[in-house]
Design a protein around this nucleic acid. Structure first.
Lengths: 209, 209
DNA sequence: CCTACCGATCGGTAGG
DNA sequence: CCTACCGATCGGTAGG
């Protein structure tokens, strides 16, 4: 409603209100999918949220499931990048250091892509799209478990807990932050990453030293 | 189809197939709700799973939402019992001891009531029933945060991480087990509880001592 | 981008 | 008049 709007150069061959491109629809969709659940969110809900009609949504998007798939791919691409780098052996870098690094960088991804990661963590496998996402996710879990096993094997992690169990619990703790983290809240990303690494690697108990 | 069936004492005034009481329907419903999601599960799916018709389900149950509410109450009642006991101050028992105890007993509840707790942890607040459950869950979270704060105050937990953050991460790790724990799997309940308390309180890192 | 719809399926209930 | 269901269909709404 600003006066300057009329002075803007004419958009080339665009009718209707602008600003509702695919990515804006995707953002709104993922937010609704997380707030109410994928199945409980109708395309009509999404349209209303965007101030559009339902058919207008389908001008930009081919299906509800496509929106889900794009969000899951976004989360999986980011996590794959982090895990792949951490899984790569490098001269002079221990598995323990790479494990700490992947925890820290995972927190960064969860914060920066919280909406799509949240969606990923709730996938049940109800469709081809969801099954494909679960498959990619299992690959990530396997890599992380192998990294934990390497850290145990090199002697830097305690060996009295099964590595596969350590991996599940450690990244269970990391992943849980999508349930409560708010960017505008009391804790910033670095603080959360520090808290997780401190708890996981050094423990909560205060030891007299 | 066993021959002995005909020899059983006549059920008193029961026609139709027996064995589909409220609790059996609830068990099947919760299992389906978790496997496919609440909204993605139709009462027809549930009927098929039980070998009944949909109206037969409604003879035992007043609504789909009632099934959800009963499962959530089951989980919340168990967790409330555990948290209430752990929150009660007792002579000669430190907050640290009560915190370790509530972690261990939470694992027991998550294993024994995994289906209903899983459902609880996925509630989004889409209905009155879900909002009521979220309210009870917040009460539990607040009690646990207070217990962590007490343990820090008495000097038994490190004070360089905010207690509210510790509480979220610690029980985030505990709760994450509903995502992968299987009773028939490699780890029993006690092993998981030991692993969680070891990681959380003593840390993963191997320190030369 | 909208109005006007479709095939199907939803949770829940009628009579018997 | 009861318990335990069935075949069919209700009013609405889903994705498209």
């Amino acid at each position: 409603m600003r006066a300057t709007e009329q002075a803007e150069p004419a958009p080339r061959r665009r009718r209707g209100r602008p600003g509702h491109d695919q990515s804006a629809i995707l953002r709104a969709a993922v937010e609704l999918f997380n707030r109410r659940g994928y199945d409980a969110t109708s395309m009509g809900d999404l349209a209303k949220e965007l101030g559009l009609t339902k058919p207008a949504i389908y001008y930009h998007v081919t299906s509800k499931e496509q929106l889900l798939g794009q969000a899951l791919d976004d989360a999986l691409d980011e996590l794959t990048s982090v895990v792949t780098e951490a899984s790569t052996e490098r001269a002079g870098v221990t598995a323990y250091q790479r494990l700490r690094e992947v925890v820290r960088r995972s927190v960064e991804v969860l914060v920066a892509h919280q909406q799509s990661v949240t969606l990923l963590l709730r996938v049940r496998g109800n469709s081809e799209v969801e099954l494909a996402a679960l498959s990619r996710r299992r690959w990530l879990d396997d890599r992380l478990a192998a990294l934990v096993a390497d850290a145990v094997a090199e002697g830097s992690l305690r060996d009295d807990v099964p590595p596969a169990l350590v991996s599940r619990l450690l990244f269970g703790m990391v992943n849980s932050l999508v349930e409560w983290y708010r960017a505008e809240g009391a804790y910033d990303q670095a603080m959360v990453a520090d808290a997780i690494t401190t708890i996981a690697f050094d423990g909560l108990a205060r030891h007299e030293s």
